[in-house]
């Protein structure tokens, strides 16, 4: 997606979010006397955010008409080629993690973690054997470190 289109999303999002904060903060109790109440700080921030949102929109609009604007190269900017495999990876990851978080408390840490790691590695293209090996190793390592050595209660 072009930068200016994302900028429009950012600007709109900032304004919408800040407006929500402003409306929500109406409910906050008013301060007694000369004190400054709990609503002051959020209101100031939200107002600034609205101004910044408008500025981003203006900049985006300028970028649209001048698509050749030179931007400072971002070191983290890397090529993401949207491919079928890539999107499948993301979809599977999200589904697996949602399931993991919802069942880990009831089924227990060791079996859920084993299955989670195995499915993810398999999806990412690791061979079955290596997936099982690494899933076991990582789970065992984490269990020993957290639960046995540090006596941290796992989910």
């Amino acid at each position: 997606m072009n930068t200016w289109k994302l900028d429009i999303v950012t600007g709109m999002g900032s304004i919408a979010f800040a407006s929500f904060v402003l409306i929500y903060a109406i409910r906050f109790p008013e301060p007694r006397g000369a004190d400054f109440g709990p609503a002051l700080f959020p209101r100031v921030i939200a107002s600034i955010l609205i101004i910044l949102g408008v500025l981003v929109l203006i900049q985006a609009w300028k970028l649209r008409t001048q698509p050749a604007t030179e931007c400072e190269p971002d070191p983290l900017d890397e090529e993401i080629v949207a491919s079928f495999h890539g999107l499948r990876n993301v979809a599977v990851t999200i589904i697996v993690l949602v399931i993991y978080i919802s069942v880990v408390g009831t089924i227990g840490f060791i079996p859920t973690t084993l299955v989670m790691l195995f499915v993810l590695m398999k999806t990412y293209g690791v061979s079955v054997l290596r997936s099982v090996l690494f899933a076991c190793l990582i789970t065992a390592f984490v269990y020993v470190l957290f639960a046995v050595l540090l006596r941290v209660v796992l989910p």
Binding site: M116, L117, L120, M121, Y124, V126, R130, F134, I138
Partner: peptide, 9 residues
């Protein structure tokens, strides 16, 4: 492919 699941965990 091995490290990413580990980071998530």
């Amino acid at each position: 492919s091995v490290i990413m699941p580990m980071i998530l965990l």
